[in-house]
Design a protein around this nucleic acid. Structure first.
Lengths: 340, 340
DNA sequence: TTGAAAGCGCTACCAG
DNA sequence: CTGGTAGCGCTTTCAA
């Protein structure tokens, strides 16, 4: 490594003032004469001095860094949340660090503990596991996004998964479908749980018997969507419609239907959750439940910064849960069975 | 915020040893008796003590954090690079922080200076601008990925863009195409430049006159691909083939051709650079130049860690440039005009 | 308005 | 094998 970094001391010496004074101008405090301030600023520029934030953090206990922890960077839903978050934190002078846990509980724990030590000022977390104890013991500000973990006392920005699933399923029912399958992710978080119940309730409300054959559950992955669709369509009494409970699953479903030679909106109806490249591309476009992803990132970041600024307690006894709305984008993938 | 964090001093007192001793067991140094070590470890666990890495960094001048700076998190190419990087750094006990610059020079500069202060140990950088001066002054270890900036003395992991573009174009030529358009990104980096020259050289080598009408240049975006394709196909003498110089452009091209009602591989031939959701999905699949994205992340991370471990000088007078190969995946999107 | 000095929590050196 | 102590680069009293 090259020669020593220049420090506040170098600046002080060169400017013939004390380090205290340099510190003051650095932090924009008033008790400095204009003359001194100008001189110090000149030297700082001359020496190309940059303060050592590590040393600053050591004293202030603030790092001006917040971390966004997501399960998977290759899902556009998460990157949209990140965009929203960064938008907000940047304006506030914070750096945002993005970490992927690969949907892996151990990785998440590791990262968390690593970052805790590194003195991040707060976290925005899309969780990879559902152990309330772990989250409850985090001594940092945390805002959960999308996946809410009960009994943690953490704030969260979530969406109305139940309603989204309900509306999506209802749309199929209204169009005369009765044999409706659901391909869901795991039911360890609110997302998988609520989407299932939204589906379930809609079916029930239409007085239709739930058929467990039509219920597929696996990973939130394209592969799961693909395999599950193949299995569903192989049934003796295959469904006439599928509700794909997330974007990746939906992509898998689309591919499977394509490979099976089934025409979407004709041979089989499809409703997805979240937009995705394929749902937009194919004709007819897929009817999907849309949620405000970018907005979720924004709101979460605002909540987090609020807590940081207020220096709120991290042991929050009155957690705030913001629930954002969803919208059903009706496009062409649902066939109306009522007209014949 | 809750009560004081517990420190090494607390552990020392409770264990009736000096802080030096605690520090030794923390760092796994030998000169500690088993008895003492056991005792200290016990207390550490009891107190649930976690070392303050900020304080450690202050002394060691290491943070065990490396940053990956990418132009855009919503391009799967970059997230694949990140996956590779994280894979390597994690094993080495490093945390990886991901930052998106949104292809914005100012943002990149800000982030860089922010992170420099924060004492990151090194950077993996997919650059957003081409100012050698800026990069030359970075006093940290840097490995460039994908985009190489000349005159910076920085190491880099890149691919053979020229060859990729050459092979892709050649494939079109071999199939009898002569009216071949290219939709490229900006030519401020090696990627845009070399891909253009690869295209150019192939055309030349086949003794065909370059027609500037067939040369489109814009952003590395889906929108650019879409618009450029519309314009190309509106020409009096439209091309019979298009070379789409990156994944997003290619997606835009595919959508435009779909909207124009042109059958790929029949009415119009297409070769893309990099795989993408749509290229895989549509039938026939698109012939694309594939490059080892994940591998690039791995190699870059290995190079970076190497430099960090060796404590190499950051003013590198003998930059290492690793060039990885590319491969043309011939699928069904190129019509053979030689057979009639 | 300025400066001196006491730390922040830890490592590293030097004694013992 | 263990302890004492001097910093790392900065902010923050407290005096002047």
């Amino acid at each position: 490594m090259s020669n020593r970094e220049i420090t506040i001391k170098d600046v002080a010496e060169r400017a013939n003032v004390s380090v205290s004074t340099v510190s003051r101008v650095l932090n924009g405090l008033d008790r400095v004469s204009d003359k001194t301030r100008t001189e110090v600023l000149k030297i700082i520029k001359e020496l190309n001095y940059i303060p050592n934030d590590i040393a600053v953090s050591m004293i202030t206990k603030k790092t001006k860094v917040i971390a966004v922890v997501v399960p998977n960077l290759e899902n556009p839903f998460y990157t949209a949340v990140i965009r929203g978050t960064v938008e907000v934190t940047k304006k506030a002078g914070y750096f945002t660090s993005v970490i992927s846990t690969n949907e892996n509980e151990v990785e998440e724990t590791d990262y968390f503990q690593g970052y805790l030590n590194r003195n991040v000022d707060g976290f925005i977390l899309i969780g990879a596991h559902d152990k309330p104890d772990f989250y409850r013991n985090i001594k940092k500000h945390v805002v959960l996004v999308d996946r809410y973990i009960d009994n943690t006392n953490l704030d969260g920005v979530i969406i109305d998964n139940f309603k989204g699933a309900y509306e999506g399923t209802k749309n199929l029912l209204e169009n005369g479908h009765t044999k409706i399958a659901v391909i869901n992710g795991p039911r360890n978080f609110n997302d998988g749980i609520e989407r299932y119940w939204g589906y379930y309730q809609a079916i029930k409300d239409y007085g239709i018997e739930i058929d467990e054959c039509y219920h597929k559950q696996g990973e939130w992955s394209e592969d799961n969507g693909y395999q599950a669709t193949l299995e569903l369509m192989k049934l003796d009494n295959p469904p006439t419609a599928i509700f794909a409970a997330n974007n990746l699953i939906c992509m898998g479903t689309i591919k499977a239907l394509r490979d099976l030679g089934l025409a979407i909106g004709e041979d089989i109806s499809l409703v997805g959750f979240d937009e995705n490249d394929l749902a937009e591309f194919i004709i007819p476009k897929i009817t999907v439940v849309r949620r405000p992803t970018y907005e979720m990132g924004i709101q979460a970041a605002e909540m987090l910064l609020q807590k940081i600024f207020n220096n709120d307690s991290t042991t929050n006894n009155n957690p705030k849960k913001v629930v954002l709305g969803v919208e059903l984008l009706k496009r062409g993938s649902v066939k109306n069975l009522n007209i014949r």
